[in-house]
Design a binder for these strands. Structure first.
Lengths: 354, 354
DNA sequence: TCGAGTTACTGTACCGATACAGAAGAAGAA
DNA sequence: TTCTTCTTCTGTATCGGTACAGTAACTCGA
């Protein structure tokens, strides 16, 4: 005996298949009595409900949206800030009934998730801007929302004010009187080590924007920072070894601006291990306001972003984009920039006297 | 002009629809020359590839598996250990070409993800065992893998040795000479406050198992612990207020066994805020070996579980279950229990003299 | 020169639903 | 009574593919 479908039930009850379909999907289309009868028979036959795949094909919507994650899905998932972002998405998506499908940006042997998985739309997050996966999504004509990506015309995007936040961080150490400033940054790709042209070395949009912000303030103050760039991997380790590189440098910085709080933790450890004090000898500023930033010792001065709000905004933008695509095709997306804010704690102080 | 389908391309090239399908999905079924021609025409017409939904319906596989998460998806995602678990799944799943769809266990207005989303199988994680969502998955006859759930006959399951780990933790403080021991635990549901019958108060399997382990050792040593149980929410806060409750108690404990490291952090803070020292006045043992456990001060004595391995094992088990379901239907699943290990750090010591 | 075995392609029958137009009967208005 | 308007149900045409059993031509050894 084959599988139980609408037809099976229809035959049992003696109605048309369409009526059974309505019993499940459009209760207002038939009498309550008949509906109950149909549901009873369906239950008896072990019918679970309309097959999701068939329904998706016929109705044209899959009920789930994709989240395209950086090449190594793993990296995105081990970061506390990314987690808050994910939680934000989930929170906003749940009431809409949409589920979230994690899409790896790296194509597999025969499967390219961005091309082969049924979704109604997608969030593009923390991806190398020229990842082929993004192209697939675009070609499919799916509603998209870019998050932390270069905003593109016609595509909704959610960003945070990386540039302003970074500028505030730099201005903060300038105001404290620092003259010798270093920048510690990280990325998945690009040039690494002590880099002379950071804008060339950096690939990801947030990193470029933060560099822009830092340099804006430093340039205006006539300060030329040393920039050390490390591959992502373990952020703390990256921060640690970057700092070792820095400290070997002939002119030791009195302030270090970091791309992330995770990086900053490594930086602080390295400074302490070198027998120096934070903030007495060296000031350190992070970025993100990771939940841990307030708890480390010394508590970290950093630039706050609300990753949860970012997630919620992204999900909301996608939900409306999908809704709109059903009626008016080809609407254009709004570009949202969420605020960032400098949070001064204990890891920054005036530079040492001499 | 409608959408571009296999038919459109077939008509343009002058071949059958089936040949076009083969050009995409079974390259070995046609000559390389014709295939190239078809692909070229397809590209020209802006065809992206076989529609995932239609393909799923016809071929009977969706290319994605579900991860059923605790009622509040948000909670699951804010926990570092859950993150490692998720990363483990992703790592193992990626090469198989399967994607991961997050399923909320709470039914929405009209949508029940566990019933309405197209998936090839599912992981059941951190769920109230009688959540209706699990029933839906079972009724659909999907290959399932239970993680941190009561093992059920016929269903593959991955667990960690919660009981043995907890027993080791309890034995550790017993061996140090502690007599007045408290247990701080947490859960999404059940009874809260100072509970007299913990096995009744606890709902989730891991919690019950850990209680079993703690009591096994404590009973044998003739120790009757005080058990405080708090609702999940923010684990640290829970630990903090649970400890306040404890300290107000007439007989202050000299050792506290905690359900998680996150909880333990709150416990330690509360103890310190009460002017006491960890471990001099009170010893604290966590559970999980959260990446932060080693870094907090004092470094936390805890029971290690390898959440990443748990994720990988779960994904692997599901992948094979799906593979097997294609051929032999109704195979039964293996029950895997991963080891746990006591890690002694600085948060435990002999009880104070008097 | 014949039959066996390949290779390259085609035709038909699903996969399991939903959409939408329409039909039959009942209720209500004039 | 007759005409409209609901309400309730039905029929047919998709949705966009894949499976599988052919068929026709081509290769090749004896």
């Amino acid at each position: 005996m084959g599988r139980v479908t609408l037809k099976t039930i229809a035959d049992h009850v003696g109605v048309s298949r369409m009526t059974v379909s309505n019993a499940f999907s459009r209760p207002d289309q038939l009498s309550a009595k008949l509906r109950d009868q149909i549901l009873a028979v369906a239950d008896e036959l072990g019918y679970v409900g309309p097959d999701p795949t068939a329904r998706a094909l016929a109705s044209g919507s899959a009920g789930t949206v994709g989240l395209l994650l950086s090449d190594t899905l793993t990296y995105a998932l081990t970061d506390e800030v990314a987690m808050a972002f994910l939680a934000g998405i989930a929170k906003e998506l749940t009431p809409t009934g949409l589920s979230l499908t994690l899409l790896s940006a790296t194509p597999q042997e025969n499967v390219v998730p961005a091309r082969d998985i049924a979704i109604d739309g997608a969030l593009v997050y923390a991806c190398n801007p020229d990842a082929s996966a993004i192209d697939w999504l675009k070609r499919r004509g799916l509603p998209l929302v870019y998050v932390d990506q270069v905003p593109a015309p016609g595509i909704a995007s959610i960003n945070i004010d990386d540039r302003l936040g970074a500028r505030a961080a730099a201005q903060h150490v300038i105001d404290l009187g620092h003259k010798r400033v270093a920048i510690v940054t990280a990325g998945a790709e690009g040039e690494f080590g002590i880099v002379t042209d950071p804008q060339k070395a950096a690939v990801a949009y947030p990193e470029r924007q933060r560099l822009l912000g830092w340099f804006e303030a430093l340039d205006a103050a006539g300060i030329k920072p040393t920039v050390v760039r490390h591959p992502h991997a373990d952020a703390q380790e990256a921060g640690y070894s970057a700092t070792q590189t820095l400290l070997e440098n002939h002119s030791r910085p009195t302030a270090v601006l970091c791309f992330s709080d995770a990086l900053a933790r490594g930086v602080i450890r390295a400074i302490q291990d070198a027998g120096l004090d934070v903030p007495k000898d060296v000031s350190v500023v992070g970025f993100d306001d990771n939940p841990l930033a307030a708890r480390t010792r010394p508590a970290l001065t950093t630039v706050r972003q609300d990753a949860d709000a970012k997630g919620r905004a992204a999900a909301a933008a996608l939900a409306t984009a999908i809704e709109r695509a059903k009626t008016r095709p080809g609407g254009r997306g709004r570009h949202v920039v969420l605020p960032t804010e400098l949070v001064v704690r204990e890891s920054t102080a005036r530079p040492p006297r001499r």
